[in-house]
Design a protein around this nucleic acid. Structure first.
Lengths: 142, 142
DNA sequence: TAACAATATTTGATATATCAAATAAAATAG
DNA sequence: CTATTTTATTTGATATATCAAATATTGTTA
């Protein structure tokens, strides 16, 4: 236990999992039917309407296959629609529905609040160093 | 993209995923048939022979159900055996096989090397602050 | 233009994550 | 000691992760 706690990668994993569970629980408790990843993906589409699935995959750091399936579910949930892309028929145009926009809007405050709670007591300086450390790890592993 | 990069949780997630892929690729490239989680679980059993699955789940930060299934696979791979626990028949005694011990031994150097590569150029001070930040996040989300 | 290579997405197979419910055994209250 | 509660694990259902292979389309080259 103590050994594990000294390993930075263990703490990274624990932190993101704890945060994810915390965020999901609060979203669920408010009766929103959406996951944090679905939320992120819809945000990506809203911010960049011409985005492809491949670009989404890079953005949210997921496999193309995962993105295909997550979007499939979001189409079923009526948050997103697919339309044929005229200029490249391998791709499809993703559009966020009214329903999708609404849930993003609604969940937005909650997400901001979640982040604030999770970062309570952490200084900007500490955040900067943490970010820079994480970015170094990312660079080192590429 | 730039926005996302400013969100600490995005970087935490990206860092651990990048590291995991990096580590798994190196393990696979060396023809070891084991995942990093299986490795961690076997280590847990070796370091604490009386450990229960529930304790393992806490250690490696997984669901009980996931641990059940991961151990099932490790039994199939002949890395671990289950025996009935005489004093409490709900539990089973987990034992690491010779084969399991061998692969842990073999992969160990690789794991240490992976960590070293991933942390190159990061000072002890930076690591300490990062660890403490992550621990604060973990505490805030509980 | 026909053959080939490259690209975007999907599908299949398998592993893992998550929650809820089921099972089985142990602990405890009455 | 029996009934009830608690605990440890398993199972079911569904979502996601991952790699490889399949599909479909586009781009390129001879």
């Amino acid at each position: 236990m103590d050994k594990l706690n000294d390993i930075i990668f263990y703490n990274i994993e624990k932190a993101i999992k704890t945060y994810r569970m915390f965020a999901m629980k609060r979203i669920r408790d408010n009766n929103y039917k959406i996951t944090t990843d679905q939320w992120l993906i819809i945000k990506s589409i809203l911010e960049n309407p011409d985005i492809t699935q491949q670009e989404i995959a890079k953005n949210v750091f997921k496999d193309n296959a995962s993105v295909t399936r997550i979007i499939e579910l979001m189409v079923k949930s009526n948050y997103v629609t697919r339309e044929e892309n005229a200029s490249d028929r391998r791709k499809s145009n993703l559009k966020v529905t009214k329903e999708g926009e609404a849930i993003i809007e609604n969940v937005n405050d909650l997400v901001i609040e979640n982040r604030k709670i999770a970062l309570k007591g952490i200084t900007q300086e500490e955040l900067n160093i943490t970010s820079s450390t994480l970015k170094k790890i990312i660079a080192n592993c590429n």
